[in-house]
Write a protein that binds this DNA or RNA. Structure first.
Lengths: 344, 344
DNA sequence: AGGGAGCGGAATAACGTTATCTTTGGCAAG
DNA sequence: CTTGCCAAAGATAACGTTATTCCGCTCCCT
C-alpha cells in the first residue's frame, strides 16, 4: 500500500500525479501549466487548472528545489535577530528586491550555535550565506567554500578563511569622534569599549590609541576595552573620571557600552562629561542627553552584503573583495559640551 | 553524461552514492552511518567516515526532507523582523529548545507580502507556521488548513479562518492603565492609539470607551484612534490638551503612539500631563520621563505560540484554542504625576 | 554436523518535481 | 497523395535521500 513515509496523522497532500489523473492528462502537462509554459493548448490549461482547484494542489517546493538544484534562498546568520538590527532590515529588503528569499537565524553570541546554524544552512544547499561572524575559528567552513558555497561576512572578517567582507570604517569613525571632541576643546579624552578579543573592539581600541599618539598624548589610563558588564564599565568610568588627571570627554566603543555608560552616569550625564558614542542609539532623540554618535551606514552595509553575495553566486571565481563603508558623525548635543562646563 | 540539472558553474557536490563507491560499501550503509544507526560494524563505520572526510560529503537536507516528509522547521511571519521584537526572540528560543529550526520573515505591514510569505511557507511544507496577522482576509489559507498545515496566530486572531491564537489581554491592560491614572486623582483622561481598522486598535479603543462609561464619564473628545503619523498624533494631542475641558492624563494605545506623543511633547512631557503607555518601551530607563507602561508578557506569548503549534503538529485534530496572556503594569514615574502638578 | 535464528549489508523502490526524449496529429508543400 | 515538419502532449529518467525487502553469512543449539 502506498502509505505516507512519515506515517503520522497528516493527510497526504495531492501531487502532480493526482492532478494529472484528475485532469486526464500527462504529468508533464501539469508541470507545464504550473510553470506557465506557453506551449500548452488553452483547453488543456483549463482542464489542469480545474483539477488543481478541485484538489487544492500546491506544488512542493522541496521537490522542486531538489530537482532544480537551486533554492532561491539565501541565509543570514546574525548575532541577534529580533533586536534592532538595521543591517538585517536592509539585507531583507535588498534580498526581496532581488527576488531572493531570506532565511534568518540568530547565532546569539554563541560559537557552537553559530557553527550549527552555518552547517545547517550548508546542508540545506542555500544559494548563499551572509554571516556576522562571532567565533574565532571558521576553518570548518573551508570544505563548504571549496564546494562552491557562496559566503559573505559582515561587520568583521572571518578567521582562517578568505571570503568577501563588508564592514564599517572603524578606524576613521574613532578618529572622527576623537577629533570632534578635541576640536571642542577637550584635552583629556577617555575611551571605554568592547573587549579586544572581539575584532571591532580590537580595531577601535587600536584606533583610539593611535589618535592619542597622533595628538602627542599619553595612552596611560585612558583606554579601557573589556567585557560589557555594568560593573566593569562603572569601574573604568570611575578611573577615567576620578583619576589623577580626570578626563573631560569620553568616546564609547559601541552601542552596549554607550547604554551602560549612560545608565551609570544617570540623568546628569551631560554635566559630568562630553560623550561621543560609536553606533546609532535607538530613540536617540528621546534619550537625555541627546547623543552625538558616529553612526554606521547600516543600510549600505546590508545592501552591499547582498550585492557581494549575488555577485559571487553569479561568478564563483571572482576575486575575493573587502568593502569598507564610511561612517557618519551625527551631532546632537552630548559631544559638544565644552570642557569648562564639566563639574570637577 | 550526468551533468548537473542547473548547468551553472557550481561544481557538483559529492552524494551518498559517491561516498559508497569511495568506501566500497552499499549506499544504504552510508545512510546508516550518517544517521548513526547502531547496526553498522565498526570497521564499516570507519571506512565510510574516511570516505566522507575525503570527499567532504555533506548530506542534502532537501532530499532528506522530501523523503521524510517532515522538515523540522517552523515558520514565523511577523510584521517586523530586525526591530525589537521580544516575542520573536522568545519564539526562537523556544523553537531551539524544542529542536525545531525557525524560518522568520517580515510581512512588513503589507497584506500582499504577507500572502506571498505564507503561501511560500506552505509550499515549502514547513511543519507549522506562526503568524502575526496583518491583512483582513485570510480565506486563501483555508485549503492549507484543510490540508493539515498547522498554524497559530499571535497578537490578533485571523479573519475568516479559525486557528489557534495567543494574545494579550488588551481590555484588562487598558482598564489597568485607566484605573491607575484615576487612582492618582485624574478625572479627565484621554486616549490616543492605533487605527480601529487594526484589531488591537479596535479592542483597545473599545476598552477605553468602556472604562470611561464605567466611571460615569462622557466619551466625547477623549478617545482618538487613527493612523500613527506625527501630524495626526499632534493634532489629537492638541485636541485633548487644549479643548474646552482639557485632560490631565493620557493613555497611549501602543508603542508607536507612545513614541510619537513623546516626540510631540518634548522634554517637558511630564509637566504637561501624566502618561501611561501600552507596550514596553526600549531603553525605558534612559528616556525622560521614565515611562509607566502596561507591558505585554512577550516572553510568554512567544513561548505559548510555539507550544500551541507543537501541540497541533502532534495532534492535528485537537480543538482550536485561544490563549489570553495577562499584562503587567510597570510603574516608573510618568503615570504618577498628580493632576495639580500639571501646567494649565 | 546440520539447520535455523539472527545480524549486517546489498539491491531497489519510493518521495514530488523538472527535463529529455519520443510520439502523435495536423497542415502545407512537392 | 505522399512527405516532411512543426507544434503539442505523453512516457520516462533523473535529483539525493531513506525505507523496505531480501540474501548471505556466522553462530549456536541439538
Amino acid at each position: 500500500m502506498g502509505q505516507t513515509p512519515a506515517g503520522n496523522g497528516r493527510p497526504r497532500r495531492p501531487t502532480m500525479v493526482d492532478v494529472a489523473r484528475e485532469a486526464g492528462v500527462a504529468l508533464r502537462t501539469v508541470s507545464r501549466v504550473v510553470n506557465n509554459d506557453p506551449t500548452v493548448g488553452p483547453a488543456y490549461v483549463a482542464k489542469v487548472e480545474a483539477a488543481i482547484a478541485a484538489l487544492n494542489f500546491r506544488p512542493d517546493e522541496r521537490a522542486r528545489q531538489l530537482r532544480l538544484g537551486v533554492t532561491g534562498t539565501i541565509g543570514a546568520a546574525v548575532r541577534r535577530i529580533a533586536e534592532v538590527n538595521p543591517a538585517l532590515a536592509a539585507i531583507e529588503q535588498t534580498a526581496r528586491a532581488t527576488g531572493l528569499r531570506l532565511l534568518a537565524s540568530s547565532t546569539d553570541f554563541d560559537e557552537s550555535r553559530e557553527r550549527d546554524i552555518l552547517v545547517s544552512m550548508c546542508r540545506q544547499r542555500l544559494d548563499g550565506i551572509i554571516v556576522e561572524p562571532f567565533g574565532n575559528s571558521h576553518g570548518y567552513l573551508e570544505p563548504e567554500l571549496a564546494a562552491g558555497m557562496p559566503m559573505v561576512s559582515m561587520d568583521r572578517p572571518m578567521s582562517g578563511i578568505s571570503v568577501d567582507c563588508v564592514m564599517s570604517d572603524n578606524a576613521a569613525g574613532i578618529g572622527t569622534a576623537f577629533h570632534h571632541l578635541h576640536r571642542h576643546g577637550h584635552r583629556r579624552i577617555g575611551y571605554i569599549g568592547d573587549s579586544e578579543l572581539v575584532f571591532s573592539g580590537r580595531e577601535r581600541a587600536a584606533a583610539f590609541r593611535a589618535a592619542l599618539v597622533a595628538h602627542g598624548q599619553s595612552v596611560a589610563g585612558l583606554v579601557h576595552p573589556g567585557d560589557i558588564t555594568a560593573e566593569r564599565v562603572a569601574a573604568d568610568l570611575d578611573t577615567v573620571l576620578h583619576g589623577p588627571d580626570p578626563a573631560t570627554a569620553l568616546v564609547t566603543g559601541n552601542l552596549d557600552t554607550t547604554i551602560a555608560v549612560l545608565r551609570v552616569l544617570g540623568p546628569q550625564a551631560a554635566s559630568r562629561l562630553a560623550i561621543v558614542g560609536f553606533d546609532e542609539v535607538p530613540l536617540a532623540d528621546l534619550v537625555r542627553p541627546a547623543l552625538t554618535v558616529v553612526a554606521q551606514d547600516t543600510a549600505t552595509i546590508g545592501r552591499t552584503a547582498v550585492e557581494l553575495l549575488s555577485a559571487r553566486i553569479a561568478d564563483p571565481s571572482r576575486p575575493v573583495q573587502t568593502v569598507i563603508v564610511p561612517v557618519e558623525l551625527k551631532v546632537r548635543g552630548s559631544g559638544e559640551v565644552p570642557p569648562h562646563a564639566i563639574d570637577s
